[in-house]
Every structure is written in C-alpha cells, then in structure tokens.
Design a protein around this nucleic acid. Structure first.
Length: 680
DNA sequence: GCAAGGTC
C-alpha cells in the first residue's frame, strides 16, 4: 500500500520548485477550479520516513483564514468600541480562499501525511497551523501526533530541498501561538481605537467636498508609530535653533598644490576659546609634520540585497517610492526574473551555486562583460550580513532578461538587482590612503588623500561613489613649514531635514515596526489617511554640523562596517541621520534628488501631539508598545509565556489607555481643533 | 468604514 502525502507550500512558486526538485521531471500538473494560480503537482517520491509515496504538492496564498468580530459587533454602531476588547472573534475562510481550502480538504481526505512547506518564520508556522485546521476538517487523523509535519528549509536549491524532505519536524506550536496573539491584539486594538477616534473626531474635520464619506481616523500598532517618526522629525526641524561655531582653518600650498588641514577639534561653540587657541598657533609660527602615513584601504562591496535595502535604494537611486519598488519587484518575481523580493536575509547560503547565476548575466550588453570577468576568475564569495530569516535568500536575479523586454520601471529595478548581485560577487574596491598629521602650536590638524587603485565592484555598481581626491604633495615627518594661510572661520549648525523615505524605512526597521513585506504599506497608509504629505526634497544647503539629529528612538542599525573613510567623515553626524553610505549620494544629489520627504499634516500633528499631551507613560505615538509586543511574542516562542497570558495582559494595557483616552478626549479634541481649524 | 500579516 503506497502512502499518500499531501504537501502544502505557502505560495505557488515554492510548490512548483519543490515538486520539480523532488520529482525530477516526472510531475503531473493539475489545475484547480476557482483559482487560476492554484495547481496540484502529483508525483512519486521515496521519503526515508515513509518509503515510496504518492505525493500531491499544492499551496495556499499566504494566510488561509481570516478573523473578524462576531456579527453583533461587526457594524460600527452595533456596540461601544471598548467592547471590542473582549468581543468574540470568529475565524473563517474568505471567499477568495474558498477554492484553496476546498482543494486542501479534498486532497487531505485521501492522505495519511500532511507535510507543511510554508516559510520557516513565525507567520509561516501559523499558516501551517491554518492548513492543518482545514485539512483536519475532512481527515481528523491528520490531527494525530506525527501525521502533520513540516519541512525545514531556507532556500529552494535542489540539494537543500531534498535534504529538507528527508527530515521532517513537528510544527512549532509556540510560534503559531505567538502569531495568534498578534492577530488578536492587532484586531482588537486597531478596531476599537479606530472606531473611537473616527466617531469622536470626524465631526471636527473639514467635510470632504465631493460628497464622499467622511474620512476614517485609524489607529494601528504600526501606522501610528510610523506617523510618530514623521512628526518627531518635523518638530526637530521646526524647533531647531541654529548655533554659531568657530573653527581654525589651516591651508598650505606646496608644489603648487593647496592642502586644507582639518582641525582635530573640528569646531567649538565658544569663540573666545577658539581665539585663544588660534593665537597660540600663530605664536608658534611654524607647523610641524608629525605623521605621514600611506596605507592600503578598501571600500567594501555591498551586502546581499534585502527588502529593506531594496526599498531604501529605490528611493535614493531609482526615484521610486518604496511601495512602487515593491510592486515592480513583485512583478519581476512573478515573471521569473528575480528571486522572492520579501526577505530579511543578507547572507547567501554556502550551498548556493552563485556562479551559475553570474553566468546568466554574461548575456547582458551592458554588464555582461563584467559578469564574464567574474567567470574568468574575478568571482569572490559575497560578504555575510547579520540577518538571516531562514525563509528566503537575498534578492538576486534568477534569469537574464533583456532590458527591452521590460517596462521602464521594471528595467530599472531589474538592473539594480542584477548589478547589486554582481557587485556582491566581485572584489572590494582597493585604494591607498595617505594621512598627514601636523601640529601647529598646541593644536593638531589633519589632511588625507585617497588614490583609488582598483575599482573592482564599483565598475558594475554605479550607485556607490569612491573617487580619488586631489593628490597630496610630498611631506616628510619632522618637516616644518609656515602655513600659507591660517584663520578663524565661523559657521552655524543647520537644521536636520524633514524625514525622507529611506530614513523612515530605516527607523521602522530598527524599531521593529512592520515587516519587510508591510513597511511600504504602512507608509502608504499614513498618506492615504491624510496624516502626512510628501514632496520631493528641495535644495537645502547642508552644513557640516548636525549634532542635533540624535533621536529618542532606536537608531537604524549600521549594517555596513566600512573600513574606508575615503570621503572624509570627520563630521559629528547623529546616528539617526541619513545613515552612512547615503552621505555621498545625498550630497551628490542635493538639489535635484528624487528623494521624497515627509511632512505631517495638521491632522497628523494633532493626533500625535494629542496622545503625547495626555501624559501616559507609554504613548501610542511612540514605537515602544509595538516593541514590547515583539518581545512578548518572542517570550511565547521560547515558552516563557503563554498566548493567553500575553493576550490578556496586553489587552489590559490597551484598555487602560483606551479609558484614559476617553477621559481626556477633550485634550485630543482641543489638539485637533487647534491644528485643523487653524489650517482653514 | 476598522489592524497587520501573508500572498497573486
């Protein structure tokens, strides 16, 4: 008797790939009525665990089940919004998912093993549990121990998949429970606060002119902190008070080359101190060369491409907002040109055959030559970043396609993905850096020069700049000279800019707001809700100093440790600023850059201000609540808390905030009135 | 009319 195994993947692409790997070409593909993308792949496979089997491999399309309040709570005026904290929640299968669920039920009836092939992350574990739920409806025995298993895999390389097929593991119930908790909390808090805000405040907003329904004022654990970041930066810009500073400038001309030396103290905010130090320099008459050092340096090639990085680069280099970049990337993925575009992973699996992928790119008329160079010995294993979601590899081109076969936007994104991949597979850029240190009286000054020796990856990756500086004249250690020019220079600190999209994404990423797949949606949501406006960043003179950019929040992680400081970084930039690596790009593009900046509307400001002024210990406007939820989910995954405990204690927390919001709704109304009414 | 998370 041949064992029947039902395999279910999270998406059709995985089902297809896994079926092809396991079946070795002997696959029968059957369409399923009701959904043109849904297929059953039938083949034989000899699983070590169960022996020779008849396999049916199919998929879902992400979450299979939906959750909503029971009927008596579903309509806005049917209950007080606070009742939604305990209202019964029903689980169902959406109309669009009915054919998918039916297919699983039908197939499960004849199967003795349910083998889950969803992504190996928390959501994937929950989707696995949803699939099991549906399968058990028609075949209860699949609910028995050992009858439902899952595959552990992190990419769809043949060897990796075959290996995963050999060693099924149980579903991780803890992870699935953590997600159940998240789903429930997001629904209860989102719906209750949204209804309450909308019904309390909408009368105060200007009526929509075109006879539309008046707007929804929504709360969500992700959209509110996202708005909070925009507002926080807005106030830092608005409240910025420029501060004057002074520095000592030393220039020396030698062999016809003018060298500017940077003061080791950069600048000071006390003019008298600078004057005194300057006079001591002058009194010394001569400067002395302390150090002449030439050493090799390099500019590291970029890390393998993650979704967040793709979105940031899209804003910076391709002039597409994150939402658009993702749409385009998805279409490239569905057409089979690039790998799955939603990934947090910046490490390529050691087992992956990267050279085969490089080989495909040799066909390109523009970067094919470079790819050929990699095939001829230039190839180097990509760097490893710090992130691995164990579900997907970094974004990379899987097949070559002519630019002309794509839309203009697709071509731009494909080119970026291809060039980024080739850059990852090549060598770091190499250069030579000379540093000259002088002492002038009691003060020290430095100058540095860079010579780029081998461009390497830079040749295929025009998005990075690294150029030789003007050559430095020869100096000898111990040499003395009287500087051609020495004087005091003054300047003032300049305000930070409004938040740009790449900065916002970086903040969300660092604070765990949303996932790689949803960050762009949250940004879109706060635009849709009219909490923020965007506009292209205009020309804005940037001065050297932005010490005031420090933020109260987690600053974006510094993903790249660049050894080279070729472009001279000795500026006290706050960590929360545009981020390293972008400095050159922003500088280059300032004035004409396509980067969008975010400015809160009066409504957006009113909401955030309103909650901040209510004086809770934890404001809904700040990212800490969401972060706490993330920690609690982790606790469930690690068995330190139960789903029930987390749900209950979090509900109580929000209920408290809700009640106090009710009590102080007047504060919020005043805030809205102050801002929104003034606008008119 | 509501959230955030999957995915086509």
């Amino acid at each position: 008797m041949v064992t029947k195994v039902l395999c279910v993947a999270e998406k059709p692409s995985i089902a297809k790939a896994v079926a092809n790997h396991l079946a070795g070409g002997q696959v029968t593909v059957r369409n399923v009525t009701g959904n043109q993308y849904l297929k059953n792949y039938c083949f034989h496979y000899n699983f070590p665990t169960w022996g020779p089997c008849d396999v049916n491999m199919t998929s879902v399309f992400g979450h299979l089940q939906s959750h909503d309040f029971a009927d008596q709570y579903r309509y806005w005026k049917s209950c007080d919004p606070s009742q939604l904290f305990e209202a019964r929640i029903e689980t169902s299968v959406d109309e669009s998912n009915k054919p998918v669920a039916k297919n699983i039920e039908t197939q499960a009836r004849y199967s003795s093993i349910l083998y889950i092939w969803t992504d190996c992350d928390r959501e994937g574990e929950h989707i696995g549990a949803e699939i099991r739920d549906v399968a058990v409806r028609s075949n209860p025995r699949l609910g028995e121990r050992g009858k439902t298993v899952r595959a552990r895999f992190s990419n769809i390389e043949r060897a990796h998949i075959i290996n995963a097929a050999r060693s099924p593991v149980p579903l991780d119930e803890a992870q699935a429970n953590a997600v159940s908790s998240r789903i429930e909390l997001d629904l209860r808090t989102g719906a209750s606060f949204t209804r309450n805000l909308t019904m309390s405040l909408q009368g105060m907003l200007p009526q929509q002119g075109d006879g539309q329904k008046s707007q929804v004022i929504s709360y969500g654990s992700c959209q509110f902190p996202t708005l909070g970041f925009v507002v926080e930066r807005y106030f830092r810009v608005r409240n910025f008070v420029p501060e004057q500073f002074w520095s000592i400038k030393v220039m020396h001309e030698k062999n016809g080359i003018k060298v500017n030396f940077r003061w080791a103290r950069n600048h000071l905010f006390d003019r008298m101190v600078v004057v005194v130090l300057f006079e001591r320099c002058l009194a010394a008459k001569k400067a002395k060369v302390d150090k002449v050092q030439t050493k090799p340096t390099s500019k590291w090639k970029p890390l393998p491409l993650t979704t967040v990085e793709l979105q940031k680069c899209g804003s910076r280099f391709l002039r597409m907002d994150s939402h658009r970049v993702m749409q385009v990337a998805e279409s490239l993925y569905t057409k089979g040109w690039i790998s799955y575009p939603r990934t947090e992973t910046d490490q390529f699996d050691r087992g992956m055959n990267l050279q085969a992928l490089v080989q495909k790119q040799t066909q390109s008329r523009t970067w094919g030559q470079f790819a050929q160079g990699l095939m001829n010995g230039g190839f180097a294993q990509p760097r490893d970043g710090r992130n691995n979601d164990k579900a997907h590899p970094p974004i990379h081109p899987v097949n070559f396609v002519e630019q002309t076969a794509l839309s203009a936007e697709e071509a731009k994104v494909y080119e970026f993905v291809a060039r980024r991949f080739l850059a990852c597979c090549s060598q770091d850029a190499k250069g030579s850096k000379t540093e000259i240190g002088i002492s002038y009286g009691p003060e020290t000054f430095n100058a540095s020069g860079l010579t780029v020796l081998e461009r390497n990856y830079l040749d295929v990756y025009p998005y990075d700049r690294w150029t030789s500086s003007q050559e430095l004249p020869q100096f000898r250690a111990g040499e003395e000279f009287e500087p051609t020019e020495a004087r005091i220079q003054d300047g003032k600190t300049s305000p930070p800019g409004y938040l740009t999209e790449p900065e916002l994404i970086a903040l969300m990423d660092a604070n765990g707001i949303g996932t790689d797949a949803t960050m762009a949606e949250h940004i879109n949501k706060i635009k849709e809700r009219k909490y923020v406006d965007t506009r292209p960043r205009g020309r804005r003179p940037r001065q050297d100093d932005n010490d005031d950019e420090a933020s109260d929040y987690e600053a974006p992680a510094e993903h790249e440790a660049e050894p080279a400081r070729g472009r001279g970084r000795g500026r006290g930039r706050g960590r929360g600023a545009a981020g390293r690596g972008s400095a050159a790009a922003n500088g280059r593009n300032s004035g004409t850059s396509g980067v969008q900046e975010f400015i809160p509307t009066t409504l957006g400001v009113a909401l955030i201000e309103g909650y901040d002024n209510m004086g809770f210990e934890i404001s809904l406007a700040k990212p800490f609540l969401r972060k706490e939820m993330e920690l609690k989910m982790k606790a469930i995954c690690e068995g330190r808390k139960t789903r029930h405990e987390v749900t209950q204690e979090t509900i109580e927390q929000y209920r408290e905030v809700y009640m106090r919001t009710q009590q102080r709704m007047q504060v919020l109304k005043d805030s809205v009135r102050r801002y929104v009414t003034n606008q008119a």
